[in-house]
Simulated scan of single mutants.
Amino acid sequence: MMNKGRHALIAFLVPLPSIIFYLSFINYSIYTCHPLLLVNLLFFFNVNLLFWLIAQIQSSHWMIDPYWTVIPVMLVHYYSSHPLAHYNCWRSRIVILLTWVWSIRLFHNYFRRENWQWGARQDWRFTDMSQQYGKHWWWASFFSIYLPHQLLLIGLSLPFYVIHSVNQPLSMWDLLALLLCLSGILLAYFADTQLYNFVNNKNKKKVLESGLWYYSRHPNYLGEQLWWWGLVVFAWNLGHGWTFIGALANTMCLGYVTKLVEQRMLKQQNRAEAYRMYQSTTSVWIPCFKFNSSASNLRLKNKNA
């Protein structure tokens, strides 16, 4: 219980340096600098360095996961309140509201999965990486976890910057972006809820292949991608389609994570055979009906022969 309370206290205190600095910053226009420059500096010192130092003390990199759900909310408010901001207030309100809904959904799913505990464990991928790097992990973790997260989160949040730096009237493209974002949030919510119920069902089957998971092996990842690509449509409509680089990097990252997750499933002897069958009949991301099971079974048998 003491560890849980300590982890919760740390999680609430770590963003304070950035918050205090920024509140003082916006009161002095003489110090105004480009929003992207300032946010990268704050991220580097307050997340990369501080989170990494705390991880060395605690021997756990747990904090980056819950903060993945919080940092985009902080970023969208940062861009909207920056002294150089110039934007359509309705578009800004829509995107800020969507970001809060996305964050609450992901925050809820994270703590539900962790049995409502702070810092109970770090991501299993970090544990695997620590074993690979061995004694070098203490310094390699900075370059393997924290710097990539800065590039990814700042990149994904580039549409927030564009939305709050261009003032144009709303259009039908904004409606399309809104629908994509909402679809992504809802898809990820229902997929994660079905996965949570499956994991906590003691009489469960070896593989989840019902509900959304009947049509796709990773519907939760698809939902997350729709959310970020929906934000890109907001920015593209404002003449800044280059912001797709963050969403593209995230899609590539999720593709790699998908590979790791499936490899992990295939290492579980009690599930390997059932999961191979699932792979042979079900789409990876894009929902579709089952493939021809007899043909898939034949291909699987030939591969194992």
Score class of each variant (00 low, 15 high):
A8R: 15
K206M: 13
L222G: 03
K290T: 14
Y28N: 15
Y31N: 08
Y189A: 08
V257T: 11
L179S: 10
L106K: 01
I57D: 01
G134M: 04
Y78W: 02
F244Y: 15
F291N: 11
G119W: 00
S294A: 13
S144T: 11
N88Y: 00
Q117L: 12
L238W: 09
Y79M: 03
F291I: 02
L153I: 15
I57Y: 11
N220I: 14
T243K: 02
W242E: 02
Y214Q: 14
R217V: 12
L49V: 15
L170H: 06
V39Y: 04
L42Q: 00
E209Q: 15
S81T: 13
Q122F: 04
W227M: 11
V257M: 10
Q58P: 00
G255P: 04
Y31E: 05
L298P: 02
P17N: 07
L23S: 02
S294K: 14
F51Y: 08
A295C: 09
N201K: 14
A188T: 09
Y67I: 06
L158K: 01
L212V: 10
A274I: 09
Q117V: 08
N167C: 08
G230T: 07
N40Q: 09
I26Q: 05
Y146T: 04
L38D: 05
L182S: 09
L186Q: 06
Y214W: 13
N46K: 04
I94Y: 04
I20W: 09
Q269G: 10
E273G: 00
F45G: 06
Y67P: 06
F244M: 10
Y87P: 01
L156C: 15
K303Y: 14
L266Q: 06
W173P: 07
V162Y: 01
Y78A: 00
N201W: 08
W137L: 10
V284W: 05
S92K: 10
Y79L: 06
L98E: 15
S141I: 07
S92E: 08
I71H: 00
L49T: 00
L226W: 06
V232W: 15
R91T: 13
D128W: 02
